[in-house]
Design a protein around this nucleic acid. Sequence first.
DNA 1: CATATATATCTAACCATTTAGTTAAACTAA
DNA 2: TTAGTTTAACTAAATGGTTAGATATATATG
Lengths: 206, 206
Amino acid sequence: MKRKIIEEITSAQKILEAARKEFARHGLDGARVDRIAHKAKVNKAMIYYHFHSKDNLYQAVIDDHLSQIGSFIEHTISEEPNIEKLLLQLAYFYNEILTKREDFVPIFLRELATGGERMRMAFKKMITEKGFHTKLKQLMDRGKESGQFREMDSLQAIISFLGMNMYYPLTASVINTVWEIKDEKIFREKRPTEVVNLFLYGLIKR
Amino acid sequence: MKRKIIEEITSAQKILEAARKEFARHGLDGARVDRIAHKAKVNKAMIYYHFHSKDNLYQAVIDDHLSQIGSFIEHTISEEPNIEKLLLQLAYFYNEILTKREDFVPIFLRELATGGERMRMAFKKMITEKGFHTKLKQLMDRGKESGQFREMDSLQAIISFLGMNMYYPLTASVINTVWEIKDEKIFREKRPTEVVNLFLYGLIKR
DNA sequence: CATATATATCTAACCATTTAGTTAAACTAA
DNA sequence: TTAGTTTAACTAAATGGTTAGATATATATG
């Protein structure tokens, strides 16, 4: 067995990184195994040695993304029982994930286009394990009961909140042109607070 | 020249319809010309006779979608100077477009994934021609000046509104599972009013 | 009206390339 | 010696696109 010194990058890693970019740019069908091999500077057979098939490699790329997102959740979102802070954490989380992990956005979009089968369950698991599902709903329902929030459908509101957060980073390539957003960076940075303000202002009873 | 009686479906139409479905399911790279020919029940060469290339056919499908969306805008959204009614019209418009024209959603998502080059300009043209860009911003800015609305970034708010409207229909396949939405139909129907209420409530000064 | 002609529509068979995946042998380190 | 790692060359199938010719229809002409 060839010993791999820790600092050395294994060919499996090189393949995975090249694949991440290739699949992001071209999707599963548009991606070319030869191109991945070339970019990773490994022999094509190495891809089949380590990953067995193109589909398998693609799934590995997705799993890698999901696990990194999972661990990012861990040290971004605390057990926060204050709804304002929780919403702000979530807003920053979505913004970061979709802004910094650029390669993930096109993969996510294309997965949605094919029904999202590959990610559905992973996301569900993530969210139920962290308890967002119940926690967010609870906080909103409690707000309604206490009279702090107005009457509305909590789930509809939550989906609206997600939409406010995720829509722009997912569609920026088109939105920037259509709505003439010149400084994308600043616009992105301002999003989380702007979104949370609008949302909370839209909930709190007057 | 073969005379085409009005009721008869031309082979070009049959191809376009089959292509619409094929490209929606599989994307440009995943789509198979042979499969389109088979589904349209025409000889494969007919596709090249009428559309010259696979790329060209794909663009024809997109153009068809865009023109149908364009004409749908025409008789859905009136010259409405009342912001509440305008927002409601927009909310219904987005909901209808993304719910009834199912084939468009995956194409839109995949186009976003590749940078949206093919649609960017068409959308920009649509929106500037109808004057939404300036009109919406104007109405919001006027609302702020008159003291009806609170202080906020109009453009950020508009993008939030778009996100609230479009995010769910674009991601329903995943969202329904993750957030345990059982009756998708009812959830979709309730969206427009729910979204407009949240948005306006979030804007109006208290 | 009949015939010739140009033009649009359509088909079966074909082709050049590309592509995912394989193989058998070589190399490397414990 | 053993087991993991790497390579060059190869293959079978799929795929976008072509071609040469057939068929039908409109139009012009005598």
